[in-house]
Write a protein that binds this DNA or RNA. Sequence first.
DNA 1: CAGTGAGCGAGCTTCCGCTTGACTT
Length: 780
Amino acid sequence: MTKNLVIVESPAKAKTIEGFLGKEYTVKSSYGHVRDLNKNTLSVNIEKDFEPEYEISDDKKALVAELKKLSNQAQTIWLASDEDREGESISWHLYEALDLKNKDTKRIVFHEITKTAILNAIENPRTIDMDLVAAQQARRVLDRLVGYELSPLLWKKVKPSLSAGRVQSVAVRLIVEREEEIKNFQQTSSYRVTAQFSFIQNGQEHTIAAEMPTRFDTEKEARAFVESCIDANYKVENIEKKPASRYPAPPFTTSTLQQEAARKLGFSVANTMRLAQQLYESGKITYMRTDSVNLSSLALGMAKKEITENYGAEYVKTRQYQTKTKGAQEAHEAIRPTYLDQHTIKGTADERRLYELIWKRTIASQMADAQLERTNVNIGISSSDKKFTATGEVILFDGFLKVYMESYDDDRAEDKMSVLPPIEVGMNLDLEKMEAQQRYTRHPLRYTEASLVKKMEELGIGRPSTYAPTISTIQKREYVTRGDIPGVTQTFNVITLKNNKITEKTGKENYGAEKGKLLPTDIGVLVNRFLLQYFENIIDYNFTANVEKEFDQISEGQRAWNKMIKDFYGVFHKQVVSTTENSGKFSGEKLLGVDPATGKNVYVKVGRFGPVAQIGDTESEEKPRFAGLRKDQSIDSITLEEVLKLFEFPRILGQFEDKEVSVSVGRFGPYVKHNNTFYSLAKTDNPATIDIERAIEIIGEKRQKDVENTILTFENDPEMKVLNGRFGPYVSYKKKNYRIAKDVDPKSLTYDDCLKLVEADPKAAPKKAAPKRKTTTKKK
DNA sequence: CAGTGAGCGAGCTTCCGCTTGACTT
């Protein structure tokens, strides 16, 4: 018999809290939301004031039943989900789904998982804040209306299975527009002049590197300047020393953790989150989905002690950080180690590296500023008014730099502190070498996963729990791919003055190479163009920020949620209807030219199966011919010549085992076909140039692999096979697959066993390709 | 990436935010 039932969102949290509360309390987890709108229908009743039709999610039915049983036995039910919009809503949905009674139910909140905080929360219960619940409902309904009205429009006008939404469509827009910026970027160049000087002090030679702050726009000007320096004298005119300090970065939020783990450890956003989840579940770090930079008083105390013991009291500076993030809800602490005295942990190499990063960042955030002395030296030229400057930086006190320094996305030098030699005002310097080098302006960098998250956070779109899933969605929809840009070789001029002689030469550099960047696809570009044309208001960068203001008003009780939705939907739905009726197919069709062989028009466009080339007109009597574009080709840049090559498939390569071998390009990439069997080409193979020898090699490799993956075959029926696949052994029969129970040794199966499995298949109905996720079965 | 290899006469696809295991053909 449970006296008190406490419900939190996460099981790891439940475990910790149960320890604080003693045996009068049972602590359970709701595992997030327990109810939601049905996945297969709109589930928003527009006629009835946008009433949402909630249902208990399939995977939560057993859990809700268990919680209901426990709550029936308990005297008091404590709803302890997070103190933000979603958390409040989770409490309300629990209240509804568990059929709770007002007098037995108490709503409590806490921001840190400590015994005092929990006990304090228990002392100060409140009721569910229905205004906040209404704000969440508005958010949920708005997202559903936008997503479930825009996506079907895309299926109709652009391509099936596409999706659009308040968050993902803006993320795609950012990537598409960055690419356009890069395409339209006008490169310019200028000449930067650097010099190396030397002097002798107490019989010792010193060198000093300097730069001229002004740049020359043209080669002519640069050369004229360098020439004017022949026979010139150089003199130290003044030295200025200035103190400077540097501050540590605030503790990690989800977004900054993802960024730093990408920069310092090379982790993908999804990988970082998986590792962080591991660390959280094993109690090593605090909650990893947070937008807060706040540390609990307990953590501040631990940090102070740790820093004092390891580095000394002068390294301590306790700080409370304030969030700068728009719309931050701050239901949790920042991400930090649970115990700061654990500098390292046991675990996999990646877990340890991520933990150490979190530890360093947390500790550094509570350490003293670094004190520096920056020195600027001006060097005069006897033949010119222009000056060279040399800068040096000396660390007087390292402070937090002893532990950690944040990285940046661009290639700015993170650690270019240089110590200047013992230089004095009035000193004459010898010129060792002067160089005027042509430097090009650089286009903005493409987004990485992590820098996209940063940008999304700045715009206030998405939440810590959705950054990683959103990035995966826009890649799954093939709006965006991750890839490398090789860059181009570019030449630059260098004018050198040495020993009073001028030489000029050209050098080479690689420009614009980028690795692991997010690149828009043809489909991404097209969908973005569609949305921009018909729904600019929805993919406006300020749309989320604006509706968030309205959600805030709802949560403050100043506005009715369904009134807000009504105002929005009135405009939005009209757009949907008018676009449905007035716009035709949106395929991005482009006429490339005329096929010299037939005289027919050649087009490229986005078809039902992706980017496709077409010879002949759709309306003509004779059916047009189609050929899919390769993954490395794009509608934007492909030439007529390249398109015509695509129609040269299938290419007959020759004979092998008395059967024809051909190569072609299909939906899943280039393949070799032999005896009605398909063999995928390796990434390194080019279907346009592949020869029969290599094709036979590929066939051999595939056969070898098949043999390795074949567990059993049967002489009486070659169609029946026991194979080893991604999910372990399975039975394959007549192109369909059947699972084998876990406790059965696949090697021991007889032909009859297999046939039984096939016949016992519950899905007798001819359903193609089972859905990836469980679909909710809604009965009417 | 084990499997698929068309250009669609059907049926299905889809949103954002909470949270973790379940467990695939």
